[in-house]
Design a protein around this nucleic acid. Structure first.
Length: 458
RNA sequence: GGCCCCGUCGUCUAGUGGUCCAGGACAUUUGGUUCUCAUCCAAAAGAUCGCGGGUUCGACUCCCGCCGGGGUCACCA
């Protein structure tokens, strides 16, 4: 392998769905690697057995594939525990005085809450346990965990390739972080460092929320004698109502957006531009175009707001790029009524520019299958309908003839053309908003159109 | 509260000391096309570049302070 090859990874924990922020991290990591003809790796971080969600991994693989984020290598952390790789690293730190056994009880939720109010303690009670005390506890059968032994009075720093700046910490404010849990599983802090090194990751790209734990990782790298990779922290996508985008505040699951009728390419394009921008202000990017144009200097530093309006716009753009056939296939899961393909293929061109999501097709075109209830008609519109009925009964059933005769009739009687057609539209489509009238009537057929008119005249 | 990050139109952003009385996109408004609604096209409005000090001949761009927003502080990731 070329030593200069870029290797990035996307390291999600399998929660059962993919967060839009996660998707964005994945695309960025993918583009960073692929722009440099490197490798993109997916690593499932599932070392917390209590949070195991059945089937979550497979769902994650599927959704990544639908976005075209194909990985070169795949790892599952829990499957690596057995090899002893994490335990070995923890032991090494222990032996060299950079970690210690901890016999404390895990904090309860209330204690964590209480701690957060005024945290002043960074050193663990077991930090300075003597060898004898440790031996005694071990002999008594106590199951220890292993924590990082953080020194005081030192400084640790790194240069962030997203923020493009150096950040440093005094080790006095760095926690004695948990590395190996008493169940033998590593925590994130140990596992990332060991895995990123083991997998020869050159660039670590992750959410901004990881920035505060970076000094811990830096110390682990240092004590393990590993070279520190490039590290970059992405912005956090904010909810329009303020704060982090979260499940409680609205949709965050990529799967949900797809179920709501958004196209993967629209979601991807939208998400790419939330936190990254090209120099030329270009808006439209497919995955391969993004890979081609990718530039790490385009990363933003401030948190963007999740703007659904723009997502809708992208979706409309991509929807209109689809052929009628492609749209037909995409629409299928969103159709409630059974309809044959030839009919749908007639309707799709009429609806294409009128929908922003796939889900909007059905309500807009429902009247083709479902005769709308008779509308409340006032006397003047009844007059219009009666006139239209007479014309449509004898007109040649084609677009030109229908339009010409209808317009001529309205004109000759001095009627308002908009009102005339609106009356007709309401009777036929049951709504003031509909696809073009003449084309719709042609699809419905003469017989059906006439009976809908009659129904409204009763 | 401690630590850390960030701060250009409502939103996403271009801008790396002079070419910026700040450019593009979404949204908004108006006009055109049109039987409705959209699409499409055209135009308008919208930012004293968070505030206050410096540095400099000159600052949105560099430095400091303040304010504001965000993140984080578990044997979760």
């Amino acid at each position: 392998m070329d030593p200069a090859t870029i290797r990035t990874r996307f390291a999600p924990s399998p929660t059962g769905y993919l967060h839009v922020g996660g998707l964005r991290t994945a695309v960025y990591a993918y583009a960073l690697a692929k722009h440099g003809r490197g490798q993109f790796i997916v690593r499932i971080e599932d070392t917390d057995q209590k949070r195991e969600v059945p089937g979550a991994k497979d769902k994650l693989y599927d959704i990544l594939k639908t976005f075209g984020l194909n990985w070169d290598e795949l790892y599952v952390q829990s499957e690596r525990v057995g090899s002893g790789i994490y335990e070995k690293a923890a032991k090494k730190l222990l032996d060299e005085g950079h970690a210690f056994y901890c016999f404390c009880k895990p904090l309860t939720k209330d204690e964590i809450k209480e701690n957060r109010k005024s945290k002043i303690q960074f050193r663990d009670p077991c930090h300075n346990l003597s060898k004898e005390q440790v031996e005694k506890k071990l002999a008594a059968g106590e199951k220890p965990a292993i924590r990082l032994k953080v020194p005081d009075g030192e400084f640790i720093s790194y240069i962030d390739f997203v923020l493009r700046k150096k950040t440093s910490w005094k080790t006095d404010v760095v926690d004695d972080a948990m590395l190996l849990k008493s169940d033998g599983f590593p925590t994130y802090h140990l596992a990332v460092v060991v895995d990123d090194h083991d997998m020869k990751i050159t660039h670590v790209l992750r959410g901004h929320d990881w920035l505060p734990s970076t000094p811990i990782h830096l110390l682990v790298y240092q004590y393990l004698g590993f070279e520190v990779p490039q590290i970059g922290h992405l912005t956090d996508i904010q909810d329009p109502s303020g704060g982090k985008l979260s499940k409680r505040k609205g949709n965050v699951a990529v799967e949900q957006f797809i179920a709501n009728g958004f196209l993967p390419e629209a979601i991807l394009n939208f998400v790419i531009l939330l936190g990254w921008a090209p120099k030329d202000n270009r808006e439209m990017f497919t995955l391969s175009e993004f890979v081609e144009h990718f530039d790490a200097n385009g990363f933003q530093k401030s948190n963007p707001l999740f703007n659904t309006q723009k997502l809708l716009w992208f979706n409309g753009q991509y929807l209109r790029q689809k052929s009628d056939r492609e749209l037909l296939e995409l629409l299928r899961p969103h159709l409630k009524t059974k309809a044959d393909d030839p009919l749908l293929l007639q309707i799709i061109p009429l609806a294409k520019s009128r929908i922003a999501t796939l889900a909007e097709f059905e309500p807009l075109t429902r009247f083709f299958w479902q005769r709308p209830a008779p509308q409340e008609q006032i006397s003047t519109t009844k007059e219009y309908l009666a006139d239209a009925l007479a014309i449509l009964s004898k007109v040649g059933w084609n677009k030109e003839a229908i339009e010409a005769d209808l317009v001529n009739s309205a004109n000759s009687k001095g009627w308002n053309r908009g009102g005339y057609f609106m009356a007709l539209r309401l009777a036929i489509a049951g709504s003031r908003i509909s696809p073009p009238l003449t084309e719709s009537m042609l699809i419905l057929g003469k017989e059906e159109v006439i009976s809908r008119l009659k129904q409204n005249l009763e």
